[in-house]
Design a protein around this nucleic acid. Structure first.
Lengths: 227, 227, 227, 227
DNA sequence: CATGAATGAGATTTCATTCAT
DNA sequence: AATGAATGAAATCTCATTCAT
């Protein structure tokens, strides 16, 4: 269905400063337009118009449309990973890492609403680029989790499965409360997600026996904090 | 970027059984091709060729390409929800529900690899249809979770946030181990996911006191670099 | 560019009364739709929908789209000619004939706004039908004018040229003040047209010498009645 | 039924002389083909073939088929108005203006047989463009007639009604004797039209008393039944 | 007579890409 | 490096007409 790209190496020999600037303008414009209109509906003409260069100039810097898309996705992923790395560095324990990571991701997604749209399209434009995006994330995530397991902060389980669980959670929460809802109630979302991560689904608090289901139902409803 | 659809009423009602059959053939073909080549790369001509009808026949049953896509997505969602409902009905407790739900989803995604490709594209083809897909899922999920909370099987937290967490987990696990990996090691994946859901991330086993966080963590805090 | 039709003979053998009624419904619907949307944009499906019969029924009564169009035009022309004949019969002198003829035409055009649109399109649908429409008009007109000339009511000149002059006047006045303007000030339009027909353009009243151009310019402006 | 255009500003300004030339070729080809086959039957492919450019080139210069049509009509009108203005400038009195105007129109229509076909179609392609065509003509006509009235050369009457009368005459005479008949006997047609314009329909010669209407007509009125 | 599903040619329009300047 | 005119393949959609029932 689509050609696959080699991991984003710089595609051209070094450029003059002027060329560098033009290339940047094109990447900026492409990011905007792929985000706004989608890959298929954003034409090269749109991109060059937005970048304020002539149509033909595009092909001086990129061999084809797919290439600039891949570069946009790779760059976006790198930027987000850098932000997350910074956030993680500020955290004391693993749960804080998870919370700050989610928060950073939400902020990024909110500032750059293109993110979701662009990355998801990659699946149909260049599958390799799409997988690369998530695999790189997972790689970082896995090594963080392993360290936390070694430190006894996180229960031992397959860190890769865990990483995909956590990425999926973040992705869907962001979709629902950042993209669709427009950032409303994000702290509450974070609280809930952290509660899940801290204790799992089950009711029995650490060290306490599970309540008898049949009898316990109603009484507990009083302190409910469901939305 | 895209028009939004009203909740999929069949637009053109074929009057004869022959017409019904043709319509079905088109829907089958569309599902296959949208899954294989993606919405943008599957042309009406491809679909009618696959369905073994003439090009013009398409427009007897659907006003445009978007409409058949929406119908395919809605139908796919309905089928999956039905399967899940059946799976849930077989389960005793909530954790079993989660596990069976995931397993059912993985099986479905494995049999109909189109699922991912098709649903994800909806975001760019018809946003309303895309949100509808997840919101319907969420609705069912939320009511199931509420019941479980009332029954004391699940800790009280915002069930909608929880639903999106769980859907995201399932989505990413399916993407990674069904779509990319081809169903290998699914039981292990389920085990890991269930471990997370059962206890959360933390190390203290159920019924055991949590390690004293303050003491265990501090050493690391010294090189924190809060910004 | 287009096929030419033979003068509208009934195209099919006599029909049952029920068939006659269906045929009429189709003709009515076609007239409406050709008038509203134009020949090219009115589809057979539109016509049968408007006539409340099935698509295939059309081809029971007409061999193709062009045929029904020609029949509509021929019928429209016949109706207008009949109306004009009645109007003429009520008139005493030739100028009254012209005035009543114009008035009748305007009324008809106003009631059936389709007229203009339909007939004019004929030029591109079936040229023979188009010429036939005007030639039949002209034929009647010419014989009327000849009689008037024989009676000494109208100056002798080529009656056919005259007929086209008068038809052209009527056509354009109707276009401007019925179609575009919506029937406003029609009596004034008739007055002006009749003044032209009565005296021609020139200023000198019958039996009076023409005014000296150079000197006479300003004084006369006082009794102007221009709109 | 049709969209309406704003008064034809060129929409796409070609920047290079080469582009200018291509644009001209397309306009020429469009004029030819709209005239020959009609708007609906002349396809963009026909036009680009005639202009000897590739299909896609059309859309470099015109956003759609309607636009080039409007431009063709506007241009045709402008050319005819220019010719008429030149003809009028050569004339001494108003009747000469009318005669020369008609002659010029006939010559133009004869050289560019497209004229009729093209302008008349405008009614169904772009109504605004169609009205604009005649209204611009009428504007010039009206101001000429007003001057002539002020000069005492033409009897005072509503100049706009008069203008449409005269345009209608010209239009139908041209249709009949240029388009259908192929320029035969045009001087005779002009003579007849001028006789009408000079004296009107009535028999009384200039400077002679009109015949007593009442007495001369009655006898004949009884059997009049012109169709 | 009446139906309406099926057809496929053909029309408009888009757009990634090339290339001469 | 930069330009923008030119290209033509391909896509969507329309619709007059046919035909089996």
């Amino acid at each position: 269905m689509n050609r696959s790209s080699t991991p984003a190496l710089p595609r051209f020999v070094p450029l003059t400063p002027r060329g560098q600037r033009t290339r940047e303008k094109l990447l900026r414009a492409a990011q905007t337009l792929f985000g706004d209109k989608g890959y298929e509906h954003a034409s090269i003409a749109d991109i060059t118009r937005e970048a304020e260069v002539a149509l033909g100039t595009f092909y001086v810097y990129f061999p084809d449309k797919q290439s600039i898309f891949v570069e946009v996705v790779d760059e976006l992923g790198a930027r987000l990973r850098r932000l997350l790395a910074e956030a993680v560095a500020r955290c004391e324990d693993r749960l804080a890492v998870e919370r700050e990571g989610l928060r950073t991701f939400f902020q990024f997604a909110s500032r750059e609403r293109h993110l979701y749209r662009i990355v998801r399209q990659a699946e149909f434009v260049d599958e390799a680029c799409y997988r690369r995006y998530y695999e790189r994330f997972a790689r970082g995530y896995v090594s963080g989790l392993k360290r936390a397991m070694d430190a006894g902060e996180v229960r031992r389980m397959d860190p890769e499965v865990l990483a995909y669980c956590l990425m999926g959670m973040g992705d869907f929460l962001g979709m629902r409360w950042v993209l669709w809802e427009g950032d409303s109630g994000l702290e509450h979302v974070l609280d809930t997600a952290m509660a899940l991560l801290r204790h799992g689904l089950e009711t029995r608090a650490a060290g306490m026996p599970a309540p008898d289901k049949k009898r316990a139902r109603k009484p507990r409803a009083s302190r409910s904090k469901t939305s």
